[in-house]
Design a protein around this nucleic acid. Structure first.
Lengths: 219, 219
DNA sequence: TATTCCGATAGTGAC
DNA sequence: GTCACTATCGGAATGAG
């Protein structure tokens, strides 16, 4: 089961990794790019405290811990806002997605939260754009783990119970229809069609800045 | 639904097909090689009577009809015995499969019967070797349609009821384990392993005669 | 219990 | 809620004028 420990090195030795991967660290946290990011930007906040890192995220992130970590959450949303808007132009759109101000962008287009049944043993908080436009998004599990109640948002923490593992894995993740997070279109279990659609949604909302035009996209 | 009518031309115009496919016909029946035969030899007997051809096989093949068709069944088993033994040498074996006499061969190695839920609309009787060693045998449905009670043997006909379609399709065919018809080994739902095993069983029981050695096998 | 194509689903093994 | 591989399972179209 060593894969479930693969976040450990980052909290133990944040200095021994490439700068491209570790974007920030101090005594309290390490912040990294998710090695298999499911959106254009996908960061993980890893508290370094040896007791906290072993706790279950839905109950371990208490009000006190939230207060301690809030500055790092804000650091991440700012990081993502700056980098995303530096790289992409936000196109005018007809839908209900308004990203004209920084506050709107962060509110509507950045997700912060934890998985109700984590697979990595070290407590980690996801901060990611809500586009799911990534080569690493390959199946229903990947998508529904961020787009159902399997994903517990930062503002909802802490829960006063641990979600039922079996229900989350075998009902919520597997049985929930695939719903587009931009337009709510229902793709049932047609992952390939959702994936294609997400690419179209992305292209209708964002356009690579010319200075980045040589960078291949994530389709 | 035209595919379900694809046997019709053989009863309407048996003379307009290749001799390789239509092996016999008269006013009563047409006998053809199954276009997608699931065993080394796989014949279909198609009664040409316009009323009989529309009947359900499990109830339509009455004692009277069986008597009328028995001679064609015998013709088929003889045809298969002659051709199979002309092409293959029967090797001595340690298992309970004794094919030393023609009667034993026909009794133990030739199946005669009908499907309890046919997909082709024209009534047809299967006569086939019990090896299931064919490129066209590609999935559990193919195998279990001849190796469960979905297959109603000639001696059991007629039934006094039509088998329940839903039970046959969704329980008997899909849920029954794959059991080797030579040695009863259970392959659960591992079709690929069963298929490989059937090839080994075939090779342990039969050997191509040298005069046919240039003919590729069915693996 | 037609075939074929495509894709969703499921189990495994990995250091 | 790792990936990558393999295989099982599941739906949809299938033609003709």
């Amino acid at each position: 089961m060593s894969w479930s420990q693969s976040l450990s090195p980052y909290i133990l030795h944040p200095d021994q990794h490439e700068k491209d991967l570790v974007v920030y660290y101090d005594d309290i946290v390490t912040i990294i790019h998710d090695g298999f990011g499911k959106s254009t930007y996908h960061l993980l906040i890893l508290p370094r405290d040896s007791k906290l890192t072993k706790k279950h995220p839905t109950t371990g992130v208490t009000a006190h811990i939230k207060n301690l970590l809030q500055t790092y959450v804000d650091w991440c949303t700012n990081y993502i806002y700056d980098h995303f808007t530096g790289r992409y132009e936000i196109l005018p759109s007809n839908d209900n997605l308004s990203m004209s101000s920084k506050e709107d962008f962060i509110e509507q287009f950045i997700l912060v939260g934890v998985h109700s049944v984590p697979s990595m043993n070290n407590l980690h908080i996801h901060v990611l754009t809500r586009d799911f436009h990534s080569l690493k998004l390959k199946n229903k599990k990947h998508y529904n783990s961020f787009n159902t109640k399997f994903f517990v948002q930062w503002d909802q923490l802490p829960l006063h119970f641990k979600p039922d593992k079996h229900e989350m894995e075998n009902v919520i993740i597997k049985k929930s229809d695939l719903i587009c997070c931009y337009c709510n279109k229902n793709f049932s279990n047609k992952f390939s069609q959702l994936k294609k659609h997400l690419g179209e949604e992305f292209d209708s909302h964002f356009k690579l800045n010319s200075s980045d035009a040589n960078v291949s996209d994530n389709t």
